[in-house]
Amino acid sequence: MDTERLVVALPPDDDDRASSHASGVLGQSSQPPFVLKQAPSLHDAASLLHDGHVDLLVASAQMWGEMEQNGLTIAACLQRREPTWVMVSDDKPEMLHHEAKVGCDHPLLERQLTRLRPDLVLIDPRTMNDAWDDMSGVERTAWYEQTRQRGTLEGYVIPRSLHRSLPGRPPRRHTLGLHRDDPTRPRFVPPPLGGLTLLISRSGFPNEQLKPMSDAGALLAHRIERAMLAAVPAVLRPITGIHVERRRPATLLMEAAKVEDEHTLESMLDPEASLKTKGHRVEIIIETLGAGGRGSASSERVFPVEHTHTGMVRALEEWSEVLQAMTSEHAALVKGAHFMGEFEASFSEAHGAMMRLEDG
């Protein structure tokens, strides 16, 4: 018996280009077969779904957060694409010449780049293009590349998905990554919820046939990153990176051994060097950067999948405590600090906050 075709609405791409991603994946599927239907807007796509004219709607995680969700649910999540951002430039960020001009329109990436290279001249493209906020991600990327080709900019920073929107042979890109293999390098914890492609259905829609293409790790990352983002005060969200990933224990152990991370090794292995608990682990990283890339408040945790909620809560608590300590003024110690030895005097003095969230 032939499998019934599922009709899928594809709204226009946002910066995450979920519809383009889904078109490639769903267009190759025969079990079940999909009929892809372009919609002029996200609102139109949602109306088609609500009215029963289509079975599914493709949305990025950002789109889903902006939608009216009553009567709708996440039926599946495709395998996550790499959520990190990239710099498009001839040289790596570390190799760009002194005071190179780089386009960057995201406050978190701006602070991360400044932490890496304080000498870079980071330019908000809005100062060069009055229509920037009215342009699509594809249009902004094309403008960036034209500006780089003219020599006005040496590079620019964009979500990885937008790099693929450039026509012809795309220019060189350099990943702004987590640098797990080298903890001495400043890392780029990405803005949350990137690289996620969701299939949205009406509540009660039978989604059994979608399970083979739905990725459990991506669903978990979406659920935890969205919950963590909701717990971060709105004023801090633009300068806070969050990354959640389900990972294999063997990979984590290899990385820990390479960088001599005794804490991770001891937390995962028993005295006989066997895993304390089997199964995948969940890695959570959250980091807020101070103004000018100076100072950060972060928490990083790895735990078994069954402890996901507890691990998330503890990571948020730890991040909040560090943030409070880093941004608070410190009064002088009345009783002194004899345990600091020769550093007692400077340690005991009153001092300002170690991290400022805003310049000034």
Rank of each mutant, 00 (worst) to 15 (best):
R247H: 02
S320K: 11
G27R: 01
D359L: 09
H163G: 11
L42M: 06
S89F: 03
A39S: 15
D90N: 11
V138F: 02
E260Q: 15
E358V: 14
E342D: 14
L193F: 04
A273F: 15
S30C: 07
S296L: 06
S214K: 05
G168A: 01
T184E: 14
K37E: 13
P83E: 00
K276G: 05
P233F: 00
E4W: 05
G24E: 10
A325Y: 12
H263R: 14
L220H: 11
E68L: 13
E260G: 07
A216C: 07
M63Y: 08
D44G: 06
G292M: 03
G195E: 05
L57D: 03
G27N: 04
Q112S: 11
P125L: 09
P125S: 03
L10T: 01
V25W: 09
L48Q: 15
H330K: 06
R314A: 12
R115K: 12
P125R: 08
V88D: 05
L42R: 09
F188Q: 05
D55A: 09
A216G: 07
S161G: 05
G103E: 03
F34V: 02
Q79P: 09
R294M: 10
R356H: 15
M354C: 07
M213A: 00
H53R: 11
L122M: 05
L323G: 01
V58Q: 00
L36P: 04
S23E: 12
S298R: 10
T184I: 11
L42T: 04
K276E: 04
P11L: 07
P118M: 05
Q146P: 01
T147P: 04
I284D: 03
R187E: 14
E255P: 01
V58L: 03
S299A: 15
D55F: 06
H53Q: 14
L252V: 15
E342Q: 12
L49P: 00
A46G: 04
T264W: 06
A256P: 08
S41A: 07
R80V: 03
L109H: 07
D16S: 09
P271G: 01
L109N: 08
L162Q: 12
M326F: 04
L229I: 08
R237V: 05
H43N: 11
S267P: 01
E66F: 06
R17K: 09
E266W: 14
N70Y: 06
L108S: 02
I239D: 01
P32Q: 10
E94T: 13
V7H: 11
E342A: 15
E255N: 10
I284M: 13
I239S: 08
I239K: 06
A76K: 05
A257R: 15
V86G: 00
G311D: 01
